[in-house]
């Protein structure tokens, strides 16, 4: 296990930049999530660390080794692919042991280590099957065991849960967190799913167009988004962004935008008058779409409140829950 450091790493594809001068430090044993929308370069970051792509500029270090020019097989990293990339003609055991066999490890040792890794990943009972005979969740475990078996310095996981259905995804997410706690390895986890990022990550790196937007704990990302993009990308529904505070009864400085999450809007007796335009019930809560002072907003309120389309309500919020962003650059501004 080792720390990972990216220093000024850039990657162009035929002149089109995918990653721009990225600096990233991952601590030894940390689980860092790289979060961003599709096409933001997050998978490229992972492939650069794996050595599957060669950086156009910058350096990559694992521990104190400079691996920038090293081939993937010599970096001692392992990867779980989105599609799992299991070899269809090999059994689960042969898939897990593949890396050991091509490195000419002794047969007995291969068998022992495969069994060990399979136990950790929870797939010891599947070893004789082929990928075609396994369910999505089972394949995922085999892929995980294959990554574990070599005891690499760094684990790279590329959207490993995106091919699972919702229930299995939640369950596997929890297991992954337990697994990380048990193995204590350095892990880089790429996802576009903010829930996964918030639940799994010790820290989150938010990426957009190949540029790092913010690096921080889930708490920091949530409470103090560094800019408009992070604020809108993390959280569902997306944070309300308003050209002025008028619609929520706040006074913001000129030229600043006000951001406020849907759950921090209160509908009651006081505040700005608003009209309900749409109600989306989501179980115990409801998303109420409103028009106030010429802007559209979404509030999340208890379902019992029973708002209907066309109702007139009053809207309020508090300054401590509101975020300020520069109207031009989108950067976070302090309240003064």
């Amino acid at each position: 296990m080792s720390a990972v450091r990216l220093a000024g790493v850039s990657k162009d594809f035929d002149g089109v930049p995918a990653v721009r001068e990225l600096d990233l430090d991952v601590a030894d044993g940390e689980l860092l999530v790289v979060l961003g929308p599709s096409g933001c370069g997050k998978s490229t970051v992972l492939r650069l660390m794996a050595g599957l792509e060669e950086a156009t500029a910058g350096r990559i270090l694992i521990g104190d080794r400079d691996v920038t020019k090293l081939s993937p097989g010599r970096r001692n990293v392992s990867m779980v692919f989105q599609s799992y990339a299991l070899f269809p003609h090999l059994t689960a055991a042969e898939n897990i042991g593949f890396g050991l066999v091509v490195r000419e490890v002794r047969r007995a040792e291969v068998r022992e280590r495969v069994a060990q890794a399979a136990t950790v990943a929870g797939c010891a009972h599947l070893l004789e099957r082929r990928p075609a005979q396994l369910s999505g969740g089972e394949r995922q475990r085999i892929a995980l065991a294959r990554a574990l078996v070599r005891e690499p310095d760094v684990f790279l996981l590329d959207e490993p849960l995106s091919n699972l259905d919702a229930e299995l995804r939640a369950q596997t997410r929890a297991e992954l967190k337990l697994l990380h706690a048990r193995v204590g390895a350095t892990m880089l986890y790429v996802t576009h799913d903010q829930i996964e990022a918030l639940t799994l990550g010790q820290r989150i790196a938010v990426l957009r167009d190949g540029e790092l937007q913010q690096l921080g704990t889930p708490e920091q990302i949530w409470r103090e988004p560094a800019n408009r993009f992070v604020a809108r990308f993390v959280g569902s529904p997306a944070m309300n962004l308003l050209a002025s505070g008028a619609a929520v009864g706040l006074e913001a400085p000129a030229g600043a935008e006000v951001g406020i999450r849907s759950e921090h809007l209160a509908l009651g007796e006081e505040g700005v008058e608003a009209t309900v335009t749409l109600v989306e019930p989501i179980g115990s809560e409801a998303l109420v779409h409103l028009r106030a002072a010429g802007t559209e907003l979404v509030a999340r309120v208890p379902a019992e409140a029973g708002h209907g389309v066309g109702d007139t309500v009053r809207l309020s919020s508090s300054r401590e829950h509101a975020h300020l962003f520069d109207g031009e650059t989108g950067e976070r501004l302090p309240w003064t």
Partner: peptide
């Protein structure tokens, strides 16, 4: 063949000849 299969092989330090013999040809 899916490109990730080749990527997975490269991560395991399999040489081109090993990839040909153990993965590509059987498939």
């Amino acid at each position: 063949l899916p490109p990730e299969l080749y990527d997975a092989c490269r991560l395991e330090a399999a040489s081109p000849f090993q990839i040909w013999r153990r993965v590509a040809m059987p498939l």
